[in-house]
Amino acid sequence: MFPEFLIQSAEEVKSALSRHDRKLVLAESCTGGLVATLMTSLPGISDYFCGSAVVYRWDTKMKWLGVQAETLNQFTDVSRETAREMALGVLQETPEASLSAAITGHLGPGAPESQDGLVCIGIARRTSCDLAVPPELVSVEALQSDALIASGPVQNHPADGLTLRQRRQLAAADQMLKLIAKALES
C-alpha cells in the first residue's frame, strides 16, 4: 500500500516516540493526512500518536489552529511563519501531546513560480507539564520538494502512474517524518 521507505521512516518515528515516552500530534496541509495515515498503519501507535488536523484552507488553519490572519495575508500559507503557527497551535490544542509537527506548501500544478514545490515544516514541543507554559518551536524549515525527490528515496521509487504532485507528497511526507525523528533525538 505504501512505499517501504515511508513505512520505515514512520517506524523510526514510532520507535523514537517509544524510547523518549513522547506523544505526537500533527497538522497537515499539502500532505492531506498522508503522514497521519502512515503513522496509524503501525500496530501499537495509539500509545504515542494523538491525531492529526488536516487544515487545507486558510479559514481552517485560523479556526482550528489559531494561525493569524495577518500571518496568512503577509506571508501566505506557503511560509515558515505559517508552519510555525500551525505547529505551535496544534500542540496548544492537544494537551496530551508533547511534540507536534506541521506541514504546509504548494505541490502544484498551477503554483506561483516562487511557491511551486515549496514545503514548510515546523516542529514544536512542550517544555513543561504546566499547560499554561506555551510550547516552544524546535525548528522550521522551507524545502523544495523536487530537491527532496532528487536526493531521497522517492527518486528510486517506481513512478508507476504517480503524478508529480503525488511524488512531491511522498517526498514531503518522508522529510516530515525525518524531521520528527531528528527532533526526538535532540
Rank of each mutant, 00 (worst) to 15 (best):
Leu143Phe: 01
Leu162Val: 10
Asp47Lys: 15
Thr71Glu: 04
Glu96His: 07
Thr104Arg: 05
Pro134Lys: 08
Pro135Gly: 04
Ala87Trp: 04
Lys178Arg: 08
Leu143Glu: 03
Leu162Lys: 13
Pro95Arg: 12
Glu185Asp: 15
Ala69Met: 03
Gly89Trp: 13
Ala87Ser: 14
Glu81Gln: 15
Asn156Ser: 12
Ser15Trp: 08
Leu107Trp: 01
Ala27Arg: 07
Glu96Ile: 02
Arg80Asp: 05
Thr37Arg: 09
Ala83Cys: 01
Gln155Asn: 15
Val13Thr: 08
Thr94Trp: 14
Arg19His: 09
Thr163Gly: 03
Val140Asp: 00
Ile149Ala: 03
Val67Leu: 02
Leu184Ala: 01
Asn73Cys: 11
Glu185Phe: 08
Glu141His: 05
Glu11Gln: 15
Ala142His: 07
Ala83Asn: 13
Val67Ile: 09
Val90Met: 05
Cys129Ser: 10
Leu6Thr: 11
Leu148Met: 04
Ala124Lys: 08
Leu26Pro: 06
Cys129Leu: 05
Ala171Gly: 02
Phe75Pro: 03
Ala69Trp: 05
Phe75Leu: 08
Arg80Leu: 13
Ala102Lys: 01
Leu88Arg: 09
Cys50Glu: 04
Lys14Phe: 14
Gln8Cys: 05
Gln166Phe: 02
Lys63Arg: 13
Glu81Gly: 11
Glu11Pro: 09
Gln155Ile: 03
Leu148Ala: 02
Gln115Asp: 09
Gly32Ile: 03
Ala172Cys: 01
Ala147Val: 14
Phe2Asp: 00
Asp146His: 05
Leu88Gln: 13
Ala159Arg: 14
Ser186Val: 13
Leu42Tyr: 02
Thr82Arg: 03
Tyr56Phe: 12
Thr71Ile: 08
Leu34Ala: 03
Ile180Gln: 03
Thr104Pro: 10
Lys63Pro: 04
Arg126Ala: 04
Ala102Tyr: 06
Glu141Tyr: 03
Thr163Arg: 07
Gln175Cys: 11
Ala53Pro: 00
Pro153Gln: 11
Gly33Trp: 00
Gln155Gly: 02
Asp47Gln: 06
Ile123Arg: 06
Arg165Thr: 05
Ile149Ser: 05
Pro112Ile: 12
Ala124Pro: 07
Ala173Leu: 05
Asp59Glu: 15
Leu34Pro: 01
Val138Lys: 01
Ser18Thr: 12
Gly152Arg: 09
Lys178Gly: 00
Val67Gln: 00
Leu148Arg: 11
Met176Phe: 08
Leu65Asn: 06
Val133Cys: 02
Ala132Asp: 12
Gly122Ser: 01
Ala142Ile: 11
